[in-house]
Design a protein around this nucleic acid. Structure first.
Lengths: 275, 275
DNA sequence: TCAAAAGTGTTATAGGTACACCCATGC
DNA sequence: GCATGGGTGTACCTATAACACTTTTGA
């Protein structure tokens, strides 16, 4: 059962849900690995692994993600921990047959570049998958390892909901960007069309989020149309007023559903109070 | 270091930040325990303990909270995990001297009733502490165990910020409540005064959150003034438009600061990408 | 009858939505 | 010139904020 009753052994893992924008398809993508080792061999999974004794969850997430994918995320932040007992309960000592359950902490990551992915030796395939808001199952693998499908769905719902009241959108963009590109992020993630005039109005009324930069960044190839004003992120603020999503009701419903799920998971056990 | 390099031992704990409203003082309170065991003996701490192998984090949080306090929370939801290596690194085997680090997952809990607290044998004192927005240190103990002060501050900032776009306020109230009581929650947590007329307007425009109930609940002692309309929570929605906090800027700033902190904690390690 | 709490109404201002229009550039 | 993406202006409507006012009760 554990090292002792007092200190039961459980293993701490992390999993990284890494998003990027596919600019050609105008779609949100997520990075998945096909496992080549047991358990759950041959199934698709989120990048992840065990936390070592000398590192924080955040450090583990970054280390493991870089090791398993060959790329480095521009943003990495804790989402929540998953601890269903059945999610992963494995033998940790072949001789004694001792088993331990695995608690994983899911991280939301954002990747902004376009480098080549590198397979490590625990995976047989690595790919970006399109994750649309609807009919998700048509675009992603059927055979997910552990509870990684659930983690993916929770994380992407939260990501979409978060855009309404935080400046996370700019984390999908390079250092210098235009207002039109911020609008693109919102349109791609929400799968809606927004009025450019009103959207810009909204953006320029958010304090402390983005700052105009005078010089045009290098490596910008000129194209048709008026040259845009360039901006850079100042700080990742939360908004005073929401940038409201025309399809927001559906996304907020999913967040409500999610809340109900994580709450009900505690209702199963009834404990009598001491008296 | 661990069971093996592959499966490093780390201990999973939970801590519960339990809030309630002190209606007499019109203040937000948090429940703290004074430890009577090592480590960190005689320091004040959040209720918490180790997760057993057969239970989820949520189940552990509820079990431990009930055991340690004698009361049962009306709301319990994961906040985030804390994994600083120095936060708690303890000997788990006296013979071998084997040490293990403790990762804790903090939970936000809300208590709505007023039953008597029960001390268990690992604590020498249990008390509700007032946690105002400013000059917090004047109201809470100086000697906090582990990183519990940090957890308390993060959690209460998040709680205050969350009210702007979610219906969490009703979780501080009993099954049946009035619009005035919802306003009280906002006023107490934000330490502001809100216009009753405009506040009611806002509330009645939120879909699916609260529902009018025709009958007057029992045990309501009549008092001066027009008898109020009674409501009950329908579902814990996220709002389409924020209920904006006149002091919101300061609270949002704290959330931004917090975001910066948890992000920068990953920046310390630089890892070269494989090529 | 008056104080207290709940609840309604009114007005000025700010914000949101829809849409027409202007600007600078490459082809 | 004209298509293209960037950007401004305006009219209309809704939301918010401030505050006066009415309703219903207990003492």
């Amino acid at each position: 059962m554990g090292v002792s009753e007092r200190f039961p052994v459980s293993l701490n893992a992390v999993n990284i849900v890494c998003f990027k924008i596919d600019w050609e398809e105008r779609a949100l993508n997520v990075l998945l690995l096909k496992r080549s080792i047991s358990p759950q061999k041959n199934k698709w999974s989120l990048p992840g692994g065990f936390v070592q004794g000398h590192e924080t969850l955040e450090e583990a997430a970054r280390r493991i993600f870089v090791d398993e994918t060959g790329i480095s995320p521009a943003y990495l932040s804790q989402f929540r921990s998953y601890s269903n007992i059945k999610r992963d309960n494995r033998v940790i000592n072949q001789r004694s047959g001792q088993k331990a359950r695995v608690v994983t902490t899911a991280f939301t990551a954002i990747y902004t570049s376009d480098e080549e992915l590198q397979l490590d030796n625990e995976s047989q395939d690595i790919r970006w998958f399109k994750i649309p808001r609807r009919y998700l199952s048509r675009y992603i693998p059927e055979d997910f390892a552990f509870d990684h499908y659930e983690i993916l769905v929770d994380t992407s719902n939260r990501l979409r909901a978060t855009l309404e009241y935080s400046g996370l959108a700019t984390r999908f963009l390079p250092e210098f960007f235009t207002l039109g590109q911020i609008q693109d992020i919102y349109e791609i993630l929400w799968e809606v069309e927004l009025d450019p005039a009103n959207f810009r109005e909204k953006l320029t009324n958010v304090d402390g989020w983005i700052r105009e930069v005078k010089k045009v960044p290098e490596n910008v190839k000129s194209r048709r149309g008026k040259p845009p004003t360039w901006y850079k992120e100042e700080s990742l603020t939360n908004f005073e007023r929401m940038i409201s999503n025309p399809e927001g009701e559906k996304i907020r419903e999913k967040e409500v559903e999610y809340q109900r799920n994580i709450e009900s998971s505690t209702e199963e056990i009834k404990i009598l109070k001491k008296k």
